[in-house]
Design a protein around this nucleic acid. Structure first.
Lengths: 205, 205
DNA sequence: CCTGGTATAGTCAACATCGACTATACAGAG
DNA sequence: CTCTGTATAGTCGATGTTGACTATACCAGG
């Protein structure tokens, strides 16, 4: 049933997690997040961070600790997590792990409208996608290998392993899909072509 | 390189696709979308639709065709796709299929912060997730079976097949993850526990 | 005949997001 | 010693998204 959270932005979750380690100001949080590579897992936008922290403060999950300035630089406001914030973090994390969410990946949307393109066109595009997928996979594999080589426990790489698993599944899917289209015996090509030509807009119904 | 599109909302893409079949007004579009089951593939919100159509109109991808009213009901404005809109639709679809996008699923965010919870807790939550995943999978399988039984070509179900493939991959991943935690020989449990107790906030660095 | 639920059709204001901008400090190139 | 690029720290405004609201029509149950 996915609760209505006062702050409903995963950047907020990440902020709470970091603030349990130590009070920080917004910019520092952003930097840590980037350096830690968590920007790969959570959509991170510099200005969103300031907004999210305001929201967290308004909701009582973090509290302003002190504001200071060094020289002529802009003032910085340090925030600390509150007890309510700790509870929210744990509750939210538990929910995210416990309940699979219905999400809307771009590729799903594209697939649902794929009839608007012709089969030859699609096969070519899917082949290019396979290259992209291979690139992403090897990028992740490199990341994992070099990180593990640095002595980090695999627990801290689960999110990358997960991503990798999904990319592999997608690759398999795309390969099967291509086969389904081009198979000279049972391929969907001819039928699709026919449909596409009499009905060049596509999408079912 | 993902172009900056004037309308950057997949609901807009879907709207364009539907409008290639026939001019429609906003509400009708929404209904068709729901009845067609495309609301499962694209995040659909009643009021977003009106906004998106305005955007499409402003960008010149659709044009107001006529406005009419029946009885005392609100006026309805019928929109038709333009030539620019047709081109945009094809170009956009091609891009979505050709280039895998980096996305940010909720579960990835949760995994990246999972150290904030203890291993026993996590195992329990993951087991519950497995149930949820199984439910989602069988829901999709039912949908596919009944639709195919209705004589619909599998091409119009690729998006559900894709979703199913991802859910299966996720299931495998979660099962492996649980094993990695609980394995009495090599399991991460003890180490994780230790880490979690000396450092109850979690997250690497 | 009245009432509740739902389909029709759309608007609106609150809130969220994101790119662009401001402004200082500082290190290195030339 | 000036110039340029980058790190620091944050604000602002345009745009997007969402839930809640308005208002009519229509059908079924009691």
């Amino acid at each position: 049933m996915t609760k209505h959270r006062k702050v409903n932005n995963l950047l907020g979750l990440t902020a709470l997690a970091y603030l349990t380690r130590a009070p920080m100001h917004a910019y520092e949080l952003g930097r840590t997040l980037r350096d830690n590579g968590d920007a790969r897992s959570v959509k991170f936008n510099h200005s969103s961070l300031y907004m999210v922290i305001q929201q967290l403060a308004k909701a009582g999950f973090v509290a302003e600790r002190e504001t200071s300035r060094e020289g002529q630089r802009p003032e910085k406001t340090v925030y600390a997590i509150t007890e309510a914030g700790r509870l929210e973090l744990l509750d939210w994390l538990r929910e995210l792990i416990e309940e699979p969410q219905h999400e809307y990946p771009h590729f799903v949307a594209a697939l649902s409208l794929i009839g608007a393109l012709g089969p030859d066109d699609v096969v070519e595009l899917l082949r290019r996608r396979l290259h992209g997928l291979a690139a992403q996979r090897s990028e992740i594999r490199d990341l994992i290998n070099t990180t593990l080589a640095g002595g980090v426990h695999p627990l801290f790489l689960v999110e990358e392993e997960y991503r990798l698993a999904l990319l592999e599944a997608e690759t398999d899917f795309v390969e099967r899909f291509i086969d389904n289209i081009v198979d000279p015996e049972t391929g969907w090509g001819p039928l699709w072509d026919q449909f596409h030509n009499t009905n060049p807009e596509g999408n079912s119904s």
